[in-house]
Amino acid sequence: MMKEKLEEIRQKAVSEIEKATDPEMLNAARVTFLGKKGELTAILKSMKEVAPEDRPKVGQWVNDTRKAIEEKMNAAKEKMEQEQMNHRLANETIDVTLPAKKHKIGHRHPNTIALEEVEKIFVGMGFEVVEGPEIEKDYYNFEALNIPANHPAKDEQDTFYINKDILLRTQTSPVQVRTMEAQKPPIRMIAPGRVFRADEVDATHSPSFHQIEGMVIDKGITFSDLKGTLQLFVKKLFGEDTKVKFRPHHFPFTEPSAEMDVSCFKCGGKGCRFCKGEGWIEILGCGMVHPKVLKMSGIDPEEYSGFAFGIGLERIALLKYEIDDMRLLYENDDRFLSQF
């Protein structure tokens, strides 16, 4: 009798659960069958009417029924949640090709990007980055670099003067002298900075531009060290396949002096419009620090030797980023800057 009744409840419950189409209906079924005032609870409450010896058996029946209903209920709930989730996900599909929401980040000047690359390479080789004044004494800019008064090189450089002793530095080389005066070897430094020459503005000239000076002073520094250091530098800057060529040249403050060419990174040295058909691009001037310069800066040339180099920063930036007009670097047009 009791068993039939429980079976009836179970069937009713299953039917209700199957009929449920949303969580509310399912919950209603739970309340109806399993709740405090539900039908199964009512049966349990009427257990006192059952003969004591039958009670464990009936109790077992009730529990089995509850378990069966609960299982059915949970399965239905799980299924319903799954469906709901699927439904939600389907509804929430978006067009991933719509434009991004961006916090607009600014752009670094190509000169700085190039400089940072150069700095990183040299700092990695143990070079210190130093600075010197942009308005400089004639002594540091010329005389201490073995360019005495009335030397034709002073004319060649088209110097801006403030007065006869003070000028706008035409090169970062005076930082060599200042560093040697202030520091004892071993010295490994680079000195980036702004320099000035009286050149009218055009696509390849600017009265204000940047150089990166470099210098190594120690015991036993050789020309082969100069070659090795600079070769390593350009391979890191322009790629492992870059070839270098050192050509004899003249600078008053180095001896021997050289200009360094790199194989054109556009055509790999075959010759193209970029390198004017030569396959090589001139990249920097360098040399062994002139013994006279060492001596003037208080370093004994018999004990120490060293090398120095000067790189045109704009030249690197123009080459690396294929910028065809130097004026762009100082106009600060957002459409230009945003490309870096």
Binding site: G126, V129, P186, R188, I221, S224, D225, K227, G228, T229
Partner: peptide, 16 residues
């Protein structure tokens, strides 16, 4: 002329 690197005298390097 060969390419060599300066024999290492320790220099710290870096930025100010």
């Amino acid at each position: 002329i060969e390419t060599t690197l300066p024999r290492a005298s320790a220099t710290a390097g870096g930025k100010s």
